[in-house]
Amino acid sequence: MGDHAHHDSTRRSYDTVAPEYATRLAAELDDKPLDKALLAALLEQTEPGTTIGDLGCGPGHVAALLAGKGAHTVGIDLSPGMVAEGGRRFPQVEFREGDLLELPAKDAEFGSVVAFYTILHLDPGELPRAFEEMARVLRPSGLLLLSFHIGEEIRHVDEWWGHDVDVDFRFLDPTRIAEQLEAAGFTVEMRLERTHYPHEVETRRAYLLARRAVSTG
């Protein structure tokens, strides 16, 4: 992981905004009915008794929502600041610090995995490795629910809520992401697009639900 310099700047950026991020976005799902519906559908299809992994979990509000519905959840984030915020706010969630390219999880540890707006910080060449890691940590037939902004642009942010940061947000092509998921051993079962809610950044968003093959080898 040490050769991925932009991961270091992303980590530092999220550490910088972690307390304010956690405060501002703690209840964001209250105003995102479609996201909540998709999370409920994921939970309904998750093998009972298995753990749900929330990758790029930030302060853990998605994992906490699932935990509130009875799931055992593990939140994984690159930023120790975000992990600390999550641990303080949501003791019902287990948090781990880690990178998408080397997830701190055992093979087949999770019954399903959520990755909301997290792959957009990766370079394009890193996506296959990230999807292979997601497949590795999922049980056979486990589900991945993925979301990202649609497009081709890269938005660089150097100021966030008055804080100095250095982070890129890469918009992605849903068809290309679906192809890469298939190459990593997933079958894409659902693809959905929506426009932004009034309180969100003005982008189109994609959601993909993909099932891990019984054997990825």
Rank of each mutant, 00 (worst) to 15 (best):
G87V: 04
L143C: 01
L208T: 05
P140H: 08
V201S: 07
L42G: 05
A67R: 09
Q45P: 05
A37L: 11
L103F: 09
P198I: 09
E182Y: 06
T187Q: 09
K36D: 01
A206H: 12
P91R: 13
S9G: 04
R194P: 03
R170G: 03
G98Y: 10
P124E: 13
H196D: 14
E44W: 11
F131I: 01
L25C: 03
T195C: 04
V188S: 04
R11S: 08
E85K: 04
H163E: 13
E44D: 15
L101Y: 12
E182K: 14
L144K: 08
L43S: 14
L55P: 04
H7Y: 12
V113I: 07
R191T: 10
L39I: 01
H4Y: 13
A18P: 12
V214S: 11
V74D: 03
H4E: 09
S9I: 07
P19F: 10
S13C: 08
G2M: 09
T216G: 00
V188W: 11
L101I: 09
L146V: 10
H199S: 07
R155L: 12
F148I: 03
D3N: 13
E133D: 10
E20N: 00
L65I: 03
T118A: 15
A41M: 04
E189R: 15
I154M: 06
H121C: 07
